[in-house]
């Protein structure tokens, strides 16, 4: 008979009360408090006292950043327990709004990010104010544009267009373009960016994606032209090919002899094994 193996010792998870008392003890070591805060996230919303204790740590500017950040993370994790978290939710949102103006830029950015994803009107107002007047900005313009894109609307579109025209940096322009990708009126802008060989390649690829979703027919036309353009960058051609392969009108593409020849040429000239493979698979699908 085979010998019974000894039962393995179970790894221990601390009792919730222990984790919480370590996490909220201002005299404790920072690393211990951070670990304990993550453990406590499991049960923060199960009683008001636990929730209050964690909120108090988060709101206290005298607490170390690492512990406050861990408290924010723990609350974020607990917020997934939607029904059980419901009694805590309004205080949580109020705390995030307060944190949006905290002196610590990381906490400010993270709080605004969550509020923006909740489509919080207060946060949106603050973000727009900051884009119009950098002196009152709570986050960088690129982050503000990114956060506004969670709930794009007319005022945000107008500001984004301004940032495309006069961007303070490349990142802000990219985020403004991304925000406008939800705006049907911006299709001509994306056509222009896509075909402009002097534009940043990342922005051209972004424009390809945006135009494809706003006007697939137009994009297919441009993608064809770019694949046949000998002076076009190879990575832009590869993006065009991926779009045509994945989402294009296969019947139309299959009958387009010049395009198929252009793809054959791309496959032959490229040094990239991935592009070669993509071209080969595309052509094989159309009997080449």
């Amino acid at each position: 008979m085979p010998k019974k193996s000894a039962k393995p010792t179970r790894p221990q998870v601390r009792a919730t009360e222990t984790s919480l008392s370590v996490a909220t003890d201002p005299k404790g070591r920072v690393a211990d408090r951070v670990t304990a805060m993550a453990e406590a996230s499991m049960t923060i919303c199960e009683d008001d006292q636990s929730f209050r204790a964690v909120i108090n740590v988060l709101r206290d500017p005298k607490e170390p950043f690492e512990v406050r950040n861990a408290a924010l993370q723990a609350l974020g994790a607990a917020a997934f327990r939607v029904i059980e978290f419901a009694p805590c939710r309004s205080d949580y949102i109020a705390t995030l709004r307060a944190l949006a103006e905290d002196r610590d830029p990381t906490l400010r950015r993270r709080a605004l990010g969550t509020l923006a994803r909740e489509k919080d009107g207060y946060a949106q107002k603050k973000l727009i104010e900051g884009l119009k007047n950098p002196d009152v900005a709570l986050v960088s313009p690129e982050k503000a544009l990114q956060f506004l894109s969670y709930d794009p609307h007319a005022e945000a579109y107008a500001i984004a267009r301004e940032f495309v025209k006069k961007p303070p940096n490349d990142e802000a322009k990219a985020e403004a373009l991304r925000l406008l990708a939800a705006d049907p009126k911006s299709a001509p802008l994306f056509e222009k960016v896509l075909r402009d060989k002097d534009e940043l390649r990342d922005n051209r690829q972004l424009a390809a994606s945006a135009l494809y979703s706003l006007n697939p027919g137009k994009f297919q036309k441009h993608a064809r032209a770019m694949l046949l353009d000998k002076s076009e960058f190879e990575d832009i051609q590869a993006t065009s090919l991926t779009a045509l392969a994945q989402f294009g009108d296969q019947e139309a593409v299959g009958k387009d002899e010049p395009l198929l020849k252009g793809i054959q040429k791309l496959g032959a000239k490229t040094r990239s094994a991935k592009y070669k493979k993509n071209a080969r698979q595309f052509l094989a699908r159309h009997g080449r």
Partner: peptide
Amino acid sequence: DQNGRVQFSNTNPLQFWKTDGFLGIN
């Protein structure tokens, strides 16, 4: 990337990901 935008290779179809009218993934 540093701004939290997810980058994909040119051959990855997830570069065209879109939800709620928003292009890409943060």
